[in-house]
Design a protein around this nucleic acid. Sequence first.
DNA 1: TGCCTCGTGGCACAGTCTGCCACTTCCTGT
DNA 2: ACAGGAAGTGGCAGACTGTGCCACGAGGCA
Lengths: 187, 187
Amino acid sequence: MDGLRERKRADSRARVVDVAFGLFAERGYDEVTVAEVCTAAGIAPRTFFRYFPTKDDVLTEPARVLADRVQAELAATPARVSDTAALHAALLVVGAELVADDQRAAGLFRVLRQAPAARAHPLMRLGDRERVVAAALVDRTGGTVDWRVRLTVARSTAAFRVWLDDLVDGAVEGDPMAHLREVLDAS
Amino acid sequence: MDGLRERKRADSRARVVDVAFGLFAERGYDEVTVAEVCTAAGIAPRTFFRYFPTKDDVLTEPARVLADRVQAELAATPARVSDTAALHAALLVVGAELVADDQRAAGLFRVLRQAPAARAHPLMRLGDRERVVAAALVDRTGGTVDWRVRLTVARSTAAFRVWLDDLVDGAVEGDPMAHLREVLDAS
DNA sequence: TGCCTCGTGGCACAGTCTGCCACTTCCTGT
DNA sequence: ACAGGAAGTGGCAGACTGTGCCACGAGGCA
C-alpha cells in the first residue's frame, strides 16, 4: 500500500502546484517569488526545491501530468493497433480530459499566456518527452525505439502542440475536439 | 554603411559565444560561470547581460543562427514551390552547412550532449521559432499563417530535430545528408 | 571642434538554487 | 510495543544569475 509518507508527499506537492498557479494567475509568474508560494503553501523554501528542481518545473508540471496520461493510455492500448493510431487515440483522450475541465483549463491557459516568451507555453513542450513516449509506444509491441518511431511521435505531438497553441490563445472556434481530430488527421 | 560601433558590437558578441563554447566544452555548462566567460572574453558581466538576456541564450545562439538561415533560404525561394518542398529544401541547405563545418559541429555537439537534460539540445528547439518560420513561409506567397501552415512547419522541423538528435548523439552511420533526406521524406 | 547618443562598466540588490546539518516523523524488524 | 534506521523537513550560509541605476568614455554628426 501507499505509505502515509508517500501520500503526504503527493498531497503536499499537489497543494504547492495549486497554490502556485493561483498566485501566478493573480499577479503573473515573474511577480511571484518562490518564498511567497512557500508561505502560502505552508512549506519552507528549502523544501520547495526538494519537490521541484527549479521554479519553472512548477509551471511545466501540467505538461508532465499530460505526458504521464499519454503513457498510461499507450500502455493500455493493444499491440495490434498501429503506432500512429495508438498515439492519436491517446492524444484525443487526454485532449478531451483537458477540455472537459473548463475551470482548470481556463486558469492554466491564462497563466501560460502571461508567461514570458522564452518559456512560453511550456505545456506544449510535450515534444521534450519524445523519447519517453516513444518508449511507451514500443513497449506495447516489444519493438525498439528507432528514428522512425521517434518521427511518428514527433509528428503527432507536433500536431497536438499546434492545436493546444490555438486553444491557449483562444483562437479555436467551434468544437475543440473536432478541431483536434482535424489537426491530427492532417498531420 | 555599418558604423564602427555596430561592427565592434557584432565582433564582441561573436567572441563571447566562441569563448563561452570553448569553456563549456572543457568543463561543462554548469561548471562555468558567467563571470568566467566575461573575464575570458574581456567584458564586464553587466555587459554580458546586454548581449544575452540569460546565460542559456548563449547556448541557444546556434539555434537562432540556424533559424535565421532557414528564414533566409525561404525568402529566396520562389512562390511557385510548395510550402513543404520549400521547407525541406531550406532544411537540407542548413543541414548541409552544419555538417560541412566538422570542427565546429563536433565541439557544438559535445557541449550539447553534456548540457543538463532539462535544457538538453536547445539546438533542437527550432520548433520554438515555429511562428517565425511560418511567417517567412507565407511571406513568399502573400498568404496568412493559419494552423495548416504551422502544422507543415511543425512537421518538417520535428523531422529535422529527430535527425539532429541522432547526429548529436553520434548515432548516424553512413552519409548524414542521405539520412536527413530519408527522415524528411518519411515525415 | 563641440555636442550628443550609445555602449560599457561598477555597484548594490533581489531572487534562485545548493550543501550541510539538526530535528522530526514514519517505517521496519524483533 | 519498542528501538533503530530511513526519509522528509527546515534553517542557515553562500554561490550564481539577472536588473536598475548612474557615471564615464568612445563613436557619430553638425
